[in-house]
């Protein structure tokens, strides 16, 4: 679905990482880890076409990112659900409308799709908060709203950037269970996190691979974790 070949990226200074070759196969479950500042967020941005690799080749659903127009990238994002590190909501719209935003902007806000919205809101336990504005939410609620929005279009791939970043252990376990459940439904999942404890706790429940960015390279982490 997402293929990288010798990809390198630099923000203008030195190279953040290089020589990354990787295929995210359908139905796979990946953790992406590494110290803060290693480039996890940057890697995910490459995966949803927000950044162009400075070197190498990146294919989204078979198309070379370099050859894609801005509209192509926009259409691609409807097939990739992203949970952003800082959530990124429209603060003037209530939670329900934020979750439905991908439907709205793709002209799919039909009644039957909006019925899905109700289901999804109760699945992430946010039915009561549907009319709240994003700034009124707690950290855990924000993360769940972000996850719900990432899922509303039934994407094939879910990229989650520190989805348990500022929630307690209990909530992070719930979020991970949601993501595992999605993976069982056939979705490709990538979770970036610097929290190794979380990875250890989750590994038992799902067949996953752990990718680690360190020393400007990406490695497959072994059993040492």
């Amino acid at each position: 679905m997402i293929e990288l070949e010798n990809v390198a990226y630099s923000y203008g200074g030195g190279e953040l990482f290089s020589e990354i070759s990787l295929k995210l196969a359908p139905g796979s479950f990946h953790f992406l880890t590494g110290p803060s500042g290693a480039g996890k967020t940057t890697f995910l941005k490459l995966c949803y076409g927000a950044l162009q690799p400075t070197d190498g080749q990146l294919r989204l659903f078979g198309a070379d990112l370099r050859d894609m127009s801005r509209d192509d990238v926009a259409l691609c994002r409807r097939r990739i659900g992203v949970v952003h590190q800082d959530c990124q909501f429209l603060d003037h719209l209530p939670v329900a409308e934020n979750v439905a935003l991908p439907l709205t902007v793709s002209g799919q806000d039909r009644p039957e799709e909006l019925a899905n919205l109700t289901d999804l809101m109760s699945w992430v336990g946010l039915t009561e908060r549907a009319n709240a504005l994003p700034p009124e939410l707690s950290g855990g609620e924000r993360q769940r709203v972000a996850l719900a929005r990432a899922l509303i279009m039934s994407p094939e791939v879910i990229l989650a950037d520190e989805p348990t970043g500022n929630v307690d252990w209990e909530m992070s376990q719930r979020l991970m269970r949601l993501l595992i459940e999605l993976n069982r439904m056939g979705k490709t999942v990538v979770i970036a996190t610097h929290d190794l404890g979380l990875i250890r706790a989750t590994k038992a429940h799902v067949q996953s691979r752990v990718l680690r960015i360190s020393n400007r390279r990406m490695q497959l982490a072994g059993a040492d974790l």
Binding site: D71, R77, H84
Partner: peptide, 15 residues
């Protein structure tokens, strides 16, 4: 900021 959020959730430039 609103524009960047819209781009992130798949809005086209036209939209």
């Amino acid at each position: 900021r609103v524009i960047s959020v819209l781009r992130l959730v798949g809005a086209t430039d036209d939209y």
